[in-house]
């Protein structure tokens, strides 16, 4: 069955044939312009008004609840908590998945990309308002590094250009508009998100701020901050 020369010849033909069929390709990362603050604000304000009741139906129909849980608290460490997340941030996330800003080398995000591609703006607004209406609960108990992390989160460390997380994400980690809530977030998810920002694998924030403001942090500090936020509720 294997005549290699024949195979490669025909593969050559095949590439030509494929170029005539334009698949809405699901394997290549689209080129999307990075967010500017103004463009993001405009996009979010152009979204329709969300409806909590309808959002609950969307969460079931699009099977959000299969991983993120009925109220946005995930079943396992793999998936972010979206319980009590700001409506604006969940909408932004879904738009980023849909438009290709949030692929994190596609194969890691393909579930969310496909789900987002199949949702309307109205569905996104509804489901985001549903999860925003849920109360945030803690994922874990405070750990030994709680106080150390709290100091970093509250005041930062200007000698290393580390900004105070609380400055944007809120004193209680409650978030603010398109700036996500971090209270109750899953620590494993938090850590890998920080890695993704530092490796420029994730670049869907405005002006690359997350990388700039946090690249002075050590891996131990990132873990401590992750555990700190995981223990908060609001």
């Amino acid at each position: 069955m294997k005549n290699n020369l024949l195979v490669s010849t025909i593969i050559g033909l095949n590439v030509f044939a494929m170029s005539q069929v334009t698949h809405a390709s699901s394997t290549e990362k689209p080129q999307v312009p990075a967010w500017t603050g103004a463009a993001l604000a405009e996009t979010i304000s152009a979204m329709p008004k969300g409806d909590i009741q309808r959002g609950q139906v969307v969460a079931k129909d699009m099977m959000c609840i299969a991983c993120h849980g009925e109220q946005g608290k995930p079943y396992t460490m793999n998936f972010p908590s979206i319980q009590g997340q700001t409506q604006e941030y969940t909408m932004k996330t879904m738009i980023d998945y849909r438009e290709g800003r949030r692929w994190e080398s596609y194969k890691r995000a393909d579930v969310m990309v496909k789900i987002a591609e199949n949702m309307t703006d109205q569905q996104i607004a509804d489901v985001s308002s549903f999860y925003a209406a849920q109360t945030t609960t803690a994922w874990q108990k405070p750990t030994a590094t709680y106080e150390q992390a709290k100091a970093l989160v509250t005041t930062g460390d200007m000698s290393r250009m580390v900004m105070a997380c609380a400055g944007c994400h809120g004193a209680e980690g409650q978030g603010n508009g398109v700036t996500p809530a971090l209270a109750g977030q899953i620590p494993q998810y938090f850590v890998r998100t920080m890695q993704a920002f530092h490796e420029k694998d994730r670049v869907n924030d405005v002006n690359g701020m997350m990388d700039q403001f946090t690249k002075g942090l050590t891996p131990e500090e990132i873990q401590a901050i992750a555990d700190y936020y995981a223990s908060l509720m609001c």
Partner: peptide, 19 residues
């Protein structure tokens, strides 16, 4: 089922499984 996401997710799972 009538769940919109189900067949979509099955297709994503298929690709993940293969890899």
């Amino acid at each position: 089922t009538e769940l919109t996401a189900q067949p979509i997710l099955e297709s994503v799972y298929q690709k993940n499984w293969q890899r």
